[in-house]
């Protein structure tokens, strides 16, 4: 009973915050509602008994992805009036597309019947005596190993892409070379001289450092 109540409670918050993501006037609020939606989705996973997925969702999406997202949105100066203008103009088209999709979904759900052979065809039924973290690990690192590795390649491509598209070598920036600094000895940098009165010191060209 409590589980059912909790399910409806969190689903309601999830849906409400999803609506708020779209309708919020302030982009930062929209992102915060998105985060709330993520958290609630994680809780729903938890209620479904998928605790590993729940916490990974919280760690990855809420803890890392959304932070960066929030970061960007906070720094942008988004002109919401301009955005809303487009929203008004495309709303009818959007509504039509949504309606069609909803109709299709309705058809799918109302006519839903899994195939007779479907449960038997499930590749990996949920094991009884394992926590679902262990069960997932057993699958991902054995049967689905190539997919796991390829997902890594996808991330590698994303990383290369981020660097290719944004990294610029600044020729003029001043880098600190710690190793060079530490390797310096007093003899290299310091010379004690006893200048004669009124004569001053002449610095040899080799000791003049280019600035």
């Amino acid at each position: 009973m409590i589980v059912n109540l909790a399910f409806y409670f969190f689903s309601f918050i999830l849906l409400a915050s999803a609506v708020m993501v779209v309708t919020s006037r302030n982009p930062v609020h929209a992102v915060l509602f998105l985060i709330l939606a993520f958290v609630n989705a994680a809780v729903l996973f938890l209620l479904a008994g998928a605790e590993f997925l729940a916490f990974i969702l919280a760690i990855v999406y809420v803890g890392a992805v959304a932070v960066l997202f929030l970061f960007v949105v906070m720094m942008l100066d988004v002109d919401f009036a301009a955005l809303k203008e487009g929203f008004q103009r495309y709303a009818p088209v959007g509504a039509l597309v949504a309606l069609v999709l909803f109709g299709e979904l309705f058809l799918v759900v109302s006519g839903w019947s899994t195939l007779a052979g479907a449960p038997a065809a499930r590749l990996y039924p949920t094991p009884d005596n394992l926590t679902n973290t262990a069960a997932l690990g057993n699958l991902i690192y054995t049967s689905y190993l190539p997919l796991f590795q390829l997902s890594g390649m996808v991330l590698l491509v994303a990383m290369i892409g981020a660097i290719v598209l944004t990294h610029r070598d600044r020729k003029r920036s001043l880098h600190q070379k710690l190793s060079a600094q530490h390797a310096r000895t007093p003899e290299q940098t310091l010379r004690l001289v006893r200048p004669e009165l009124g004569a001053g010191v002449s610095v040899p060209a080799s000791e003049k450092e280019a600035t």
Binding site: L32, F52, F55, I59, G63, V67, F71, T131
Partner: peptide, 21 residues
């Protein structure tokens, strides 16, 4: 709970929101 360490990690990674907000 059997994913306690994940819970801890998740909660501590949420801590940043208080500050950023």
């Amino acid at each position: 709970i059997n994913v306690g360490i994940l819970y801890l990690f998740a909660v501590s990674s949420l801590g940043v929101y208080g500050i950023i907000i």
